[in-house]
Nucleic acid binder design. Structure first.
Lengths: 190, 190
DNA sequence: GTCTATAATTCGATAGAC
DNA sequence: GTCTATCGAATTATAGAC
């Protein structure tokens, strides 16, 4: 197999991506402490020392694996009355399509660094969007964002982490409708 | 110091209680994996082998430390319109007065046994109460209980575990009012 | 009932050969 | 860039003296 890319063949990039994928999967499934450099390396089919070489230490590996974007959507075209359900629908997509979020949530319960990262994620991505949508003053917007976070994260916790049967059994449409109504209330009600 | 109790002096009971208190505190603060038998024993001022003697192994220690009662209140005298806020108020009391719940929540994210215990707690204590309060058919009541759990556990997660600043800053009265309204909706709305 | 000593693992991290 | 070998530390759990 010939290689047509110019310059040196950067095999390390592929290895890095493989390691990160394995790390994300294990952090999402077991949290920070149960995930070991050895087990990640085994899953990735490489030697444990490669993980150290690329990411320095276990903290560096987690930081690289938990780095991501909420990809909050542009909701300009959505009528005001449908913003709550639209937000819930978007979050369901993100939770189900990227295990990075679950890795962060699982880890944040027992790891200070992950909890801090969760705070940053909330402050830089979620809070500004809520402030813009609700059109509220800054102080009020922060409380609204906090209430919304409590409901959305609680849903993710019960459905994807704890797997409470009645929450797992909820149909997507019902979640969007009922939790969406709650988010709508937190966005605009006094 | 004389001992007036009949029968043998059960010093072991006091030791057991001391161990459990220390274990609960550490499980609540750090989760399952970070809590070690050694550190619990040190905090309790006894030898690590005593913990093994009384509880068999680490799992047994956690099971004993996380065994508790939600103490769900008798809400017979509460008018139907005030049930949501009354429930939220009660849960706030329980979360702030007993670190056992936080130990369970922190641990449930990364420990299968704790997650299973959380399911049992939900199914045996929370779901029946919701079914009774909502007066709904069994199937509908399960979904209502799940929705309420997602909001209440999400609040505890953001306020006591992740410590998101806007959620920590919320005054108790505002929590009871706004989250209470959500719970009320989940209890009775279609 | 309490403690000492230690066995048996497991993990993060380092040094260095190829 | 990849792997072998290994160190040092920490942990659960056991055996047994007092």
């Amino acid at each position: 197999m010939t290689d047509a890319t110019p310059g040196p063949v950067r095999r390390s990039d592929a290895t890095k991506a493989t390691i990160l994928a394995a790390a994300r999967a294990q952090f999402a499934a077991s949290g920070y402490q149960s995930t070991t450099i050895r087990s990640v390396a085994t899953a990735a089919g490489i030697d444990p020392s490669m993980v150290m070489r690329y990411f320095g230490n276990k903290e560096g590996l987690f930081a690289a694996a938990a780095d991501f974007d909420l990809r909050l959507p542009d909701l300009a075209g959505v009528p005001r009355a449908g913003l709550g359900p639209a937000l819930v629908s978007h979050f369901l997509d993100r939770w189900e399509g990227d295990e990075t979020l679950m890795a962060l949530l699982r880890t944040a319960s027992t790891n200070e660094a992950a909890a801090a990262r969760m705070q940053t994620l909330f402050a830089t991505q979620m809070a500004p969007l809520i402030a813009r949508l609700s059109g509220d003053a800054r102080a009020g917007a922060a409380a609204r964002a906090g209430l919304i976070a409590s409901q959305v994260l609680g849903l993710a916790l019960c459905r994807y982490v704890l797997k409470l049967p009645p929450v797992v059994a909820l149909k997507r449409a019902e979640i969007v409708r009922r939790i969406g109504a709650t988010v709508q209330s937190y966005l605009f009600d006094a």
